[in-house]
Amino acid sequence: MTANRRVVLSSDHAGIALRRAIATHINALGWEAVDIGPTTPESTPYPQHGAAAAQRVASEDCRFGVIICGTGQGIMMAANKVPGIRCGVCSEPFSARMIRQHNDANMLALGARVVGEGLALAIVDGFLSAEFEGGRHATRVEMIAALEQ
C-alpha cells in the first residue's frame, strides 16, 4: 500500500481502546492503519506518543495521523511541535472536515474521555473524507508554515 493511504495511530494509556477501534475502522475504509502503540495500560506520557506519530507524518511515511489522549489537547500540543505538522483536536465531524479543507491538517487528535467510540469514528470519517481546498486557504497555511522558521 502506498504511503498516501497510511494513517499512523498512537495514544497514551487513556486512548488504547479507542485507538484500536479506530484502527479497525480505518482499515475497513481502505486505508492502512499503522498502530504504533502503546499496547499495555500502564501510565505513559502522551508527549512521546504524539511526537512519534508526528514524525511518521512529517517524514511522509504516513499520509495522516490520528492521536489520542484523555482530552486530545496535550498530545495535539506535542505533535504540533514537530515541523510540518498541523494537528487539531476535534469533538465533532464538522471541525474535522474543516481542519482538512481550510487548514490542510495532516493529523487529528481526539479525547478518549471526551468522545465515545461512535462519535470518534464519525470524526475520523469527516477528517479522512475531506480534501484541502487550496486557494485563499493555501496562503494561510503557508503563513502557518513560515512560523516554524
Rank of each mutant, 00 (worst) to 15 (best):
M1W: 09
T2A: 15
T2V: 11
N4T: 04
V7M: 04
L9Q: 07
S10E: 01
A14W: 13
A14H: 13
I16C: 14
A17P: 09
R19I: 12
R20E: 15
R20K: 14
I22W: 13
I22Q: 15
A23P: 08
H25M: 03
H25P: 06
N27F: 02
A28Q: 10
W31Q: 08
V34W: 13
V34R: 11
D35L: 14
I36M: 11
P38W: 04
P41D: 11
E42G: 05
S43H: 01
T44A: 12
T44M: 06
T44W: 00
P45W: 03
P47S: 02
P47V: 02
H49M: 14
H49T: 09
A52V: 05
A54T: 01
Q55F: 06
S59K: 03
S59M: 02
S59Q: 06
E60Y: 01
D61F: 05
C62T: 07
R63C: 11
I68W: 05
C69Y: 07
G74H: 06
I75A: 13
A78P: 08
A79D: 02
A79M: 07
A79T: 09
N80S: 05
N80P: 06
P83F: 08
P83C: 00
C87W: 03
G88E: 07
C90L: 08
P93E: 15
P93W: 07
A96W: 13
R97N: 03
M98Q: 12
R100Y: 04
Q101K: 11
H102P: 15
H102L: 06
G111C: 14
A112C: 15
V114W: 12
V115W: 14
G116R: 04
E117W: 08
L119V: 05
L119D: 08
A120R: 14
L121Y: 10
L121R: 07
V124K: 12
G126M: 12
G126V: 02
F127K: 11
L128E: 12
L128Q: 13
E133W: 02
G135W: 06
G135A: 07
R136E: 06
H137W: 02
H137K: 08
T139S: 04
V141F: 00
E142A: 07
E142W: 00
A145I: 02
A146N: 01
A146M: 02
A146L: 03
L147Y: 01
E148R: 00
Q149P: 00
Q149T: 03
